[in-house]
Every structure is written in structure tokens, then in C-alpha cells.
């Protein structure tokens, strides 16, 4: 146990030495508090972030609405908070789902090798070669009723949310897959895997107890960087109208009308984008910090 805490204590120590990484961690914590603050705020003020008031369009900031009202007369601050929850959640879920696809593909290719590896890597290379955004747009434009979903579901907010999670995951797993494959191949020939085989372990035992724990470190780093990319994808798709659909806010779709509004209410165009920028930047710096903290060169016990 001292060693487990030993490894993680050392890593934590190194992360703390990484100023940008620590700053991002703090920033992310603050942003998380910010997006979650809508719950108490709504409870106290009784304002509904989805309630439009056409008489309050573009109202300037006031005590009740510190950032003013948007083009439909909704409270901008609250919508930024709720939209942030959606954007961050999409970021996390799509990363996890895509990560699972990537890990499955990478482990299968790296562990079993041979023809399976060749096939999976051809698919991965093919995916990497594609221009992702056009593909995402087409996927985002797919009419869910045509693939068997009820019209009711297809037009619900939940469908918009899950659709974007799934399509991003379907497209953004290749980096993880390659990384996992390379790490798996490195570990596959280790003697402790042979020893496990001699002790009667099957392939699944070995993957679960030896491979996955030993490749977790690079995966964590890569997944962190993926979160940033996914949040960018979400914002783009929602912005173009193929992602999270209003009235559910997301930082991306809050910029939907921003292009026309840039002359009348420029700040409405500034806020959500700045928040996306900030979050993605922090996530990327955190990934950099983790990479530094998990660096195998400093991993060896002293």
C-alpha cells in the first residue's frame, strides 16, 4: 500500500511542480463550480433559463440579470451555466465512449496481432485520413426516424444530446486506439504475462489484470487531451445546428445567432466562446501536466 500511494504521491508531487497544470486544475475546479451554480441560483431567484421573454430581448445587465438577456429575452448568465453543464457533460461522455471504442480496438489489435491487427489498423488509418468535421456534420444531419427511432424521441432534447455524444465517439477514437495498440504490444511480451499464462490465465484474464492496469497511464493522459478536442467538436456542431438543439443551451448553440448579433450584441458572441476557449485550454494544459507527472522516465523508483 505504501507503494501504491508511493507512485501516486510522486506523481502528485510532480504535477504540483507543473505550474500550468496546477493552474488549469484550479481553473477547471472553479469553472465546474460556476456551471453548477445555476442550481442554487435558480432556486433562489426563481428564474428559468429556458423561459423566453420577448419584451426583455437584449436587456442590458441588471442586478437580477448580471449579464443581461439574450436575443430571446433569456437570462444569459444562467444559460451560460446550464449550457456549460451540457457542453462539459458531452465532452466527458463522448470521451469515455470513444475511449472505450479506442481501448477495445487497440487492445484487440495489439494483443492478438496478426490479421485482426492488420484489419483494425487499416480501419483506423482510414478513419484518421478522413476529414472529420464534414463527416460529423453528415452524421449530425441524419434523420433519426429513418433509422427506426420514434419521431417523438428524434425531436426531443435528449436525442440531440445523445446523438452528439455518440457521433463524436464514433469518430474520435483513433488516437486512443493507436496509443493503446502500441502500449499493448510493448507489454504483451513481458514475462509476467507469460507467468500468468503458465498459471492458467486466459486472454481475458491477462487483458483485465495485466494489460489494462499497465497501460492506464498513457490512456489517462490521452483521454484528457481528447476531452478538449471533444468539447471543441461539440461547440462546432451545436453552433452549426447539428448538435445540441435549443431550447437546451450549450456553449456551442448559444453562438448560433451570434454571427448576426455580432453587430448588435457583441458580448453575447464573446461569452460562450471565451468559456469554451478557457475550458479547452485548461484541459490541454492539464493533459500536459499529467504527461509530465506520469512520465515513465521519472516513474522508476529512486
Amino acid at each position: 500500500m505504501s507503494a501504491a500511494s508511493g507512485i501516486w504521491a510522486r506523481r502528485w508531487q510532480r504535477l504540483r511542480g507543473h505550474r500550468a497544470g496546477m493552474a488549469s486544475l484550479v481553473l477547471l475546479a472553479l469553472l465546474l463550480l460556476f456551471v453548477l451554480a445555476d442550481v442554487p441560483l435558480e432556486a433562489i431567484t426563481g428564474i428559468d433559463p429556458n423561459e423566453a421573454d420577448l419584451f426583455a430581448r437584449f436587456d442590458p445587465p441588471s442586478w437580477a440579470h448580471p449579464l443581461g438577456m439574450d436575443e430571446a429575452g433569456r437570462d444569459v448568465l444562467l444559460r451560460l451555466m446550464v449550457g456549460g453543464q451540457i457542453s462539459l457533460l458531452v465532452g466527458l461522455l463522448a470521451t469515455l465512449l470513444g475511449g472505450m471504442i479506442g481501448i477495445a480496438v487497440g487492445v484487440a489489435a495489439g494483443f492478438w496481432g496478426g490479421r485482426l491487427d492488420a484489419l483494425l489498423m487499416r480501419v483506423t488509418d482510414g478513419m484518421i485520413a478522413l476529414p472529420l468535421l464534414p463527416l460529423l456534420i453528415v452524421l449530425g444531419a441524419v434523420d433519426l426516424t429513418k433509422i427506426g427511432f420514434s419521431s417523438e424521441f428524434a425531436h426531443s432534447g435528449a436525442a440531440g444530446f445523445w446523438r452528439i455524444v455518440v457521433i463524436i465517439a464514433l469518430v474520435d477514437w483513433t488516437a486512443i486506439a493507436r496509443l493503446v495498440r502500441a502500449s499493448t504490444m510493448q507489454i504483451r511480451e513481458r514475462d509476467y504475462i507469460r507467468a500468468a499464462r503458465a498459471a492458467g490465465a486466459g486472454s481475458w484474464d491477462i487483458i483485465a489484470t495485466h494489460i489494462l492496469p499497465n497501460i492506464a497511464t498513457p490512456i489517462i493522459v490521452a483521454l484528457t487531451l481528447t476531452v478538449g478536442r471533444v468539447i471543441l467538436f461539440e461547440s462546432v456542431l451545436s453552433f452549426l445546428g447539428f448538435g445540441v438543439v435549443p431550447p437546451t443551451p450549450s456553449w456551442g448553440n448559444m453562438l448560433n445567432n451570434a454571427q448576426e448579433l455580432v453587430t448588435t450584441a457583441p458580448l453575447l458572441a464573446v461569452y460562450p466562446g471565451a468559456l469554451i476557449f478557457l475550458v479547452v485550454m485548461a484541459v490541454n494544459f492539464l493533459g500536459d501536466g499529467l504527461q509530465h507527472a506520469f512520465d515513465p522516465r521519472s516513474e522508476q523508483p529512486e
Binding site: M1, A3, A4, R190, D191, Y192, R194, A195, A198, A199, G200, T209, H210, P213, N214
Partner: peptide, 21 residues
């Protein structure tokens, strides 16, 4: 008969999973 034959390797560093107690 798996348990009847076990193996000890040359390199004791690579033979033990670093993530296990």
C-alpha cells in the same frame, strides 16, 4: 494440468507485474 508446471524467468524485473502487490 496447468498447475503442475510453473516457470521462473531470467529477468526478475520483467517477471513481476509492476502494478500488482
Amino acid at each position: 494440468i496447468r498447475r503442475e508446471v510453473q516457470i521462473v524467468f531470467q529477468d526478475p524485473f520483467g517477471a513481476l507485474d509492476p502494478r500488482m502487490l
